[in-house]
């Protein structure tokens, strides 16, 4: 299968899953049931930014499915492949929105799920000043707890915001990585679709700080590409769905670095099998230069630890 075909396949899978999620949610709650993420003024941010439409209930959410479908055109060129990647992002948001529509509190500790506007506003300034030099989205599963902890701590030491999706969350906790928003290590969720909660961080940054008009997809993608220094580390076996989500990241301008054998795309999709080099490879790929010098002390030292609480048992 060509790389683009893998993306199209994954996007279709995501769409099917989104359809199923909407159907099941409507079955449970009815099409008038309210759909919203908590504490945001941007409705379903990805859909809002891409289409300019605010979604209020499940019936309106169902209508979005046809937009998603129209984005999946399996022609062999980059434009269509990136559109399919965006379709996957929209499908993921639909699926996640259904979770919030059906359940009172779909996410619980340690997972954060949707991130509120207030948090994004507080992250905005350090992102602009370079105090947070980048956003690392680590998704999947590292080969060992040690490798997982090493990579995450390495990012943390450099002051990056790290978002975790999948089994890497358990590996981080087992590896004694302290997690939490104030420590800039945020486990999002175990499902692949929960990656959308970091995507909406970038998207809301464009809406809030970039004043990108909702519905102007081109300008949105330009803003995220130029202004949001994010990248993805996809570790462990890659499903078609993950690859198509990766295409969504690439559409936003975020390079994907993986430890798996894939058809590399210069600058955007890079294979790095040496786990000691994943961090430098990622930083170079996103053009992130670390401003602070690392102090050779036996404990982690970075702004990420500023909010740390030392508990009695520690």
């Amino acid at each position: 299968m060509t790389l683009f075909d893998i993306i199209f396949t994954g996007s279709k899978q995501a769409l099917e899953a989104a359809k199923a999620a909407v159907d099941s949610a409507i079955e449970k709650k009815g099409s008038d049931a309210k759909v919203a993420f908590p504490e945001t003024a941007y409705s379903l941010p990805t859909i809002y930014a891409a289409t300019g439409k605010k979604i209020g209930n499940l019936g309106e959410l169902r209508d979005v499915l046809s937009i998603v479908e129209s984005l999946i055109v399996p022609e062999q060129n980059l434009e269509k492949a990136l559109n399919a990647g965006l379709a996957t992002a929209l499908s993921a948001e639909i699926i996640e929105a259904c979770k919030y529509a059906v359940e009172e509190k779909p996410y619980s500790e340690p997972c954060a799920g949707f991130i509120s506007d207030a948090v994004i506003r507080s992250l905005g300034v350090p992102l602009v000043t370079g105090d947070i030099p980048g956003v690392a989205v680590v998704i999947g599963e590292a080969p060992s707890v040690e490798e997982a902890a090493k990579i995450i701590k390495n990012y943390q030491n450099k002051g990056l915001l790290v978002c975790l999706v999948g089994k890497i969350i358990d590996q981080a906790i087992e590896g004694k990585v302290k997690v939490g928003l104030e420590l800039r290590v945020v486990p999002l969720g175990y499902d692949v679709t929960s990656v959308i909660h970091v995507v909406t961080v970038a998207i809301r940054a464009a809406l809030i700080f970039g004043a990108v008009p909702p519905g102007n997809l081109e300008e949105l993608l330009k803003y995220t590409r130029e202004r949001v220094p994010a990248f993805v580390n996809a570790l462990g076996p890659l499903s078609e769905l993950v690859v198509s989500a990766g295409a969504g990241a690439i559409a936003l301008g975020f390079p994907v670095i993986t430890d798996q054998d894939v058809q590399e795309v210069p600058h955007f999709l890079i294979t790095q099998k040496d786990y000691d080099k994943i961090v430098p490879t990622s930083l170079e790929a996103r053009g992130i230069k670390i401003k602070i010098t690392e102090v050779p002390i036996p404990v982690g030292f970075a702004a990420a630890f500023e909010g740390e609480r030392v508990r009695k048992e520690d």
Partner: peptide, 10 residues
Amino acid sequence: VDAIKSGVLR
């Protein structure tokens, strides 16, 4: 080669 193989360049 990567650009061509991936399909970014046809």
